[in-house]
Design a protein around this nucleic acid. Structure first.
Length: 580
RNA sequence: CGGGGUGUAGCGCAGUCUGGUAGCGCAUCGGCUUUGGGAGCCGAGGGCCGGAGGUUCAAAUCCUCUCACCCCGACCA
């Protein structure tokens, strides 16, 4: 492909609206253009990357025995009413009517459609297991789209749905998908981590997320360097590092001390000379089952997902200070477990505390030397907090947890019979009895992978594509395209590489050299070959790996062979063909 | 949804407070020079000032309404 005749509108300046590197670079390198909030056009170069991700996903899904289909993006409301999600889904679901006034939505996901398909077409246990997937444009009317492609409203997703007769079958399907996902992200050349995840409202037993590691990631994931345990922050459990009061000791009687004007944990800790780890923090949450006072160690953070689970609610929210004061009968800076009026739940890390400091449920006072069971009823201790770096791993108890930031690019989970039951799907088993199949569902954010790959692979000059995803493996940079001799060399190298199965981008623009170099750095193709100028005079072509400082001169008759070998060996990754 | 902000040439912005009929840099087009890291000089083209209504002799500028987009906080591939 020729640079000069392709729409690659690179930008010299940084777009003001882009806050993360991937968004900036995708705009600057001319991969995408914004049409509306969270809605983007993919330009030729960006589309090629998208197609590469798709191709890898397809190959691996097909190899795993999944069948590709393509379901409608527009879905009738009836199906969603049947599953109950028409009411449940909320404003994120884009709804509209056709000319006849019939209601539809633009699919944010396709459980209903695929389940409907299966109920119509599959009759027998012999039709199972089955796994259908598609690569489809989805739309979710996000509260706040941001970071460009990373959190757009319209996005490209691979979604797959497995159907099995029983739990063992589902387990097998699930394992296959986890293995497939590992291969997919490895082939993409990304540094990623698979982590255990919360199953959310659907409540299935098992769920994993796949995160591309990047400092700018919106999610936090915890992992153990000893045993390999990894989970997202919502789910991760750890053993808190003991504080100074976590040792059995003689504790005097409960004392009430004046702490005028001290509200925050830090203020009280400093005033009383007590470590944060010896303090009990009270937070008020409210949900469908009412309000509760949650207790955490002074240095810990509440995890709302865990709180909801512990309280048996779908979700809970931290209430604002006014509401908290109203519910607890005392201001937020003065609450404590001793003599409070709300039902209490305590974080496990508090169980070993002897002689804690807490609010006295009286404005301007705190209690010192509180003891569970003596000064207040023994609370129920459960995991309520976010782990912090350095907590001990609960699985192996031999190594600390570390925290990293990640971008969620894949999610697999066991759905169970939620949809097959709601839509009354049955197949006959070997005994002729009707059985309800159980489902697994498996998503990959295809377009998000493109952004995540850039987020993970760039420098101050531009993108540094992993070979597997690069829109082209090689850029041929023609120093002076008006020199017929240069162009002849360029064309023959281009042809040689193409015959070797590698597509190239030839920058044949009549631009100043500096412009072409800058654009080459920005686009970030893995190899750059400079044709012309001083090297060509010596019968050579200069090649350079993007991101590496050293340049090599290769004799003209060797260029094609060398580049082919280099591209094929890079990262040990085979590039797949994206066209036809 | 709440809070803040911006819409003026393809991009980035000034002009708005204090009304007088639109400007700068980059990009584009032409010419000359230059040619291994975003060139220099000369010249040119391009703007219903987001939209609608109002005030005024006169509106990018003041008023009202509206639309879009961006940013900051609670949600998710």
């Amino acid at each position: 492909m020729r640079f000069g005749t392709t729409l690659i509108p690179t930008l010299k300046e940084n777009p003001v609206e882009a806050r993360v590197e991937s968004h900036r670079l995708m705009l600057r390198a001319g991969l995408i253009r914004q049409l509306g909030a969270g809605i983007y056009t993919w330009l030729p170069l960006g589309l090629r990357v998208l197609r590469r991700v798709e191709a890898i996903v397809r190959e691996e899904m097909d190899a795993a025995g999944a069948q590709e289909i393509l379901m409608p993006a527009v879905q009738p409301a009836e199906l969603w009413q049947e599953s109950g999600r028409w009411q449940m889904y909320g404003p994120e679901l884009l709804r509209f009517k056709d000319r006849g006034g019939r209601e539809f939505c633009f699919g944010p996901t396709h459980e209903e459609v695929v389940t409907d398909l299966v109920r119509r077409e599959l009759r027998s246990y012999r039709d199972l297991p089955a796994n259908f997937y598609q690569i489809q444009t989805k739309f979710r009317d996000e509260i706040r789209p941001r970071f460009g492609i990373m959190r757009g409203r319209e996005f490209l997703m691979k979604d797959a749905y497995s159907f099995d007769l029983d739990e063992e079958g589902l387990e097998q399907s699930y394992r296959t998908m986890v293995a497939t996902y590992n291969r997919i992200f490895e082939r993409c050349g990304l540094r990623y981590r698979a982590v255990e995840a919360d199953t959310g409202a659907i409540g299935g037993a098992f769920s994993h997320e796949f995160h591309v590691l990047a400092d700018s990631g919106e999610d936090v994931i915890a992992s153990c360097e000893g045993c390999g345990y990894a989970a997202n922050l919502e789910k991760a459990e750890g053993l808190a590092t003991p504080g100074t009061l976590d040792v059995p000791r003689e504790v005097g009687p409960l004392r009430k001390v004046a702490t005028p004007g001290r509200k925050t944990m830090e203020e009280v800790a400093e005033f009383l000379g007590c470590p944060l780890t010896g303090m009990v923090k009270s937070l008020v949450v409210e949900g469908t089952q009412g309000a509760f006072q949650l207790l955490l160690r002074g240095d810990h953070e509440l995890n709302l997902v865990k709180a909801a689970h512990a309280l048996g609610m779908d979700g809970v929210a931290l209430v604002d200070p006014e509401r908290a004061a109203e519910l607890a009968g005392v201001g937020v800076g003065s609450m404590g477990p001793v003599g409070g009026r709300l039902p209490v739940l305590a974080d496990s890390a508090l169980a070993t505390l002897s002689g804690f400091v807490s609010g006295a449920n009286e404005e301007g006072y705190h209690f010192v030397d509180g003891v569970w069971g003596r000064d207040c009823p023994m609370p129920r201790f459960v995991d309520l907090r976010n782990v912090v770096a350095g907590d001990q791993c609960l699985r192996c108890r031999a190594a600390p947890l570390r925290l990293d930031r990640g971008i969620e690019v894949g999610h697999v989970f066991k759905l169970g019979d939620k949809y097959t039951r709601a839509l009354k799907v049955t197949v006959q088993d070997a005994d002729g009895k009707e059985r309800t199949p159980i489902m697994g569902c498996y998503g990959i954010g295809v377009s998000r992978i493109v952004a995540a790959a850039i987020e993970q692979n760039h420098d101050e000059l531009g993108i540094i594509w992993p070979v597997a995803l690069a829109p082209f493996a090689v850029e041929l940079l023609v120093v002076n395209p008006r020199e017929e001799a240069s162009m002849q060399v360029a064309r023959s190298v281009e042809q040689g590489l193409r015959q070797g199965g590698i597509e190239v981008l030839m920058d044949d623009r009549d631009e100043r050299l500096g412009v072409k170099f800058k654009d080459a750095d920005l686009l970030g193709l893995p190899w750059r070959a400079v044709i012309g100028g001083r090297s060509l005079k010596e019968g050579a072509v200069e090649i350079q790996r993007r991101g590496q400082p050293d340049k090599e001169r290769i004799a003209l008759d060797q260029v094609v062979a060398v580049l082919l070998a280099r591209v094929r060996s890079l990262d040990g990754i085979t590039r797949v063909n994206i066209h036809r």
